[in-house]
Each structure stands twice: as structure tokens, then as C-alpha cells.
């Protein structure tokens, strides 16, 4: 039906005589200017990334000779392989690879667990409400806005007591604690708009607490799960403060390692390697955005309509 409508509208538009066409041409001018401005901003925003990519693909000599903005005369992947596996990071010449692995080992469980717990919290706070649920949700929200710096010392003490200080599981724990606030917020608001009658129908059908969650709510939670995963992944992957504070040499995440790579004071500054390392550190979040990004806005809207 809608296609019929548009085709009708189009024929009506082209079939009408000159005056309307004239108006179209005048209407096109602002549009052209608009696109020009947009293109300009696009270039402006992409320029840093271009500079990084270009410089990561040229030998160090070309950069130090002052050709920062020029395309490489001699294309090379050497800076990339150096950054990945041989560059000096802190005291060891291991490249960024082990730290990349650390970050993955930290991000995946932290994102997965905080998302699942957030979904469960949201489910309980909206569909199995109890006395004080609103207050509890308020406190969880409050947790979202506690500045990182405040918890550094108590958290260090806690991690020590739990025996996971300076380990990857320790970092997972820290990010989990911080992540639950946001994931709860997302899922609570999303599930607030989820019809309670469905839960009641499932109850009458004989489904229990977890069955209802798994069979009825989770299959409809795609958009908000994507939002939550993107948010958590980006935040945890990009975190520097907790990584620098609570990790040991062998458990440092990518962000801290990148800093160490760039700050290593022995020898010459290998800018091309630094550029390659910085891109490597940014790639996973970029990938997550590209793959899941189109759900992001949709999910945000879906959650924000009610609740």
C-alpha cells in the first residue's frame, strides 16, 4: 500500500507544470549548501584518523623528515607488526599483543555478566516489584554517577581482601560493579514498557521466574541488549584509570600498554609504531559500532519512550 502512495505522489509531482518545478530548483540550492557543509565537517572529523592511518603505514624517516601530512612514498606494514609483537612496552619488548589479549579477557566477561545481571535487575524491578524497589533503583542509579576516583582506595582494599588484586579477574570485578548500574538503568526502562500482561499470562501457563525471563522477555530484548553491550564495551575497553590502578605488569589492559608504548623513554620515538598501536587500541570499539551501531539509536529510543 505505501508504495502505491509514493508512486502516485511521484507521478503527480512530475506531471504538474512548470511553477512547481521552478520551486524545486530554488529549494535545491540550500540543500547543496547543506551537503557541502556536512562534507566539510566530515573531512574535518576524519582528518585525524587519516593522519594516523597514513603515518602508521610509512617508515619513521619520512615522519621525522617533516612529511607528516604527505602520503607515504614507501608503503610499509612494518610499524604494525612492530606495534603488535616486537615493540618495547614498559620493560619487555613484547609488542601490544599480550595486552590486547588481556583487554579481551577483561572486556568479554565484564560486558557479558553486567548485561545479564542488568537484564535480571530490570526484570525484577519492573515485573516482580517489591516494597522499596523504587528506592533500590534510585540507589543503583546513584551508583552510576559516583566518580571513579572516589572508589580507587576502597576498591584497592576490597580487591586485596578478595585476593584478586592485580589480576584480570580483579579488573573484571571492578568493571562489573560499575557496569551494573548502567545496564540496570537501561533494562529497567526497557522492561517498564514491556506489557506486564505477558508475564501474567506466562505465570498462568505455568512458567517460573527464570523461564519467563528466558522465553518471554529475553527474546524481545535485542535492541536494548545491543545498546547495553555497545555502551559497556566502549567504556570498559577505553578505561584507563582502573586499568592503571588495579593491574599488574602481566594483567595490564590495552589502554595502559599503549601509554607505556608511547612513554617508553629508551631510544628514538617511533611515531609510526605509536600510530599503529593507537589504531589497534581503537579498532575493537570501532568494529562494535559498525556491526551493532545501527541498533544503537533504535534501542535508545525504544528504551526511552516509557519508564
Amino acid at each position: 500500500m505505501p508504495t502505491d502512495f509514493t508512486s502516485q505522489a511521484v507521478t503527480a509531482g512530475t506531471g504538474t507544470p512548470a511553477p512547481i518545478r521552478k520551486r524545486r530548483r530554488t529549494a535545491a540550492a540550500p540543500r547543496v549548501i547543506l551537503y557541502l557543509i556536512l562534507a566539510l565537517f566530515c573531512v574535518y572529523y576524519l582528518l585525524p584518523l587519516c593522519v594516523m592511518v597514513v603515518n602508521s603505514l610509512k617508515p619513521l624517516g619520512e615522519i621525522t623528515a617533516g612529511g607528516m601530512m604527505a602520503l607515504p612514498e614507501q608503503w610499509t606494514l612494518a610499524p604494525w607488526s612492530s606495534a603488535w609483537s616486537t615493540a618495547q612496552v614498559g620493560v619487555d619488548a613484547t609488542g601490544l599483543r599480550p595486552y590486547f589479549v588481556n583487554s579481551i579477557l577483561m572486556v568479554v566477561p565484564a560486558v557479558a555478566i553486567s548485561t545479564i545481571l542488568g537484564a535480571l535487575n530490570g526484570y525484577v524491578l519492573t515485573k516482580w516489584t517489591f516494597r522499596g524497589a523504587t528506592l533500590l533503583f534510585g540507589l543503583v542509579l546513584f551508583g552510576c554517577f559516583i566518580p571513579f576516583q572516589i572508589v580507587l582506595i576502597p576498591m584497592a582494599r576490597m580487591l586485596g581482601l578478595m585476593g584478586i588484586a592485580g589480576t584480570v579477574p580483579g579488573l573484571v570485578f571492578v568493571h562489573l560493579v560499575y557496569g551494573i548500574g548502567f545496564s540496570t538503568l537501561y533494562f529497567r526502562n526497557y522492561y517498564a514498557a514491556f506489557p506486564t500482561e505477558l508475564v501474567r499470562a506466562a505465570q498462568i501457563d505455568g512458567a517460573g521466574f527464570f523461564t519467563i525471563f528466558r522465553r518471554i522477555l529475553l527474546p524481545s530484548s535485542g535492541p536494548i541488549a545491543v545498546v547495553c553491550i555497545i555502551w559497556q564495551f566502549t567504556n570498559i575497553w577505553n578505561d584507563f584509570l582502573f586499568g592503571a590502578s588495579f593491574s599488574d605488569f602481566d594483567s595490564q589492559p590495552m589502554t595502559v600498554a599503549l601509554n607505556n608504548l608511547v612513554q617508553s623513554s629508551t631510544g628514538v620515538k617511533e611515531y609510526n609504531v605509536h600510530f599503529a598501536g593507537a589504531i589497534m587500541a581503537a579498532l575493537p570499539t570501532l568494529l562494535v559500532y559498525v556491526v551493532a551501531g545501527r541498533f544503537f539509536v533504535r534501542g535508545l529510543m525504544a528504551g526511552s519512550v516509557k519508564g
Binding site: 506489557p195 500482561e197 505477558l198 501474567r200 499470562a201 506466562a202 522465553r215 518471554i216
Partner: peptide, 8 residues
Amino acid sequence: FQSYALYP
């Protein structure tokens, strides 16, 4: 139910 409450 009033809204039918069919599992979507």
C-alpha cells in the same frame, strides 16, 4: 487478557 497477551 484484554490485550490478548500473546507472546510476540
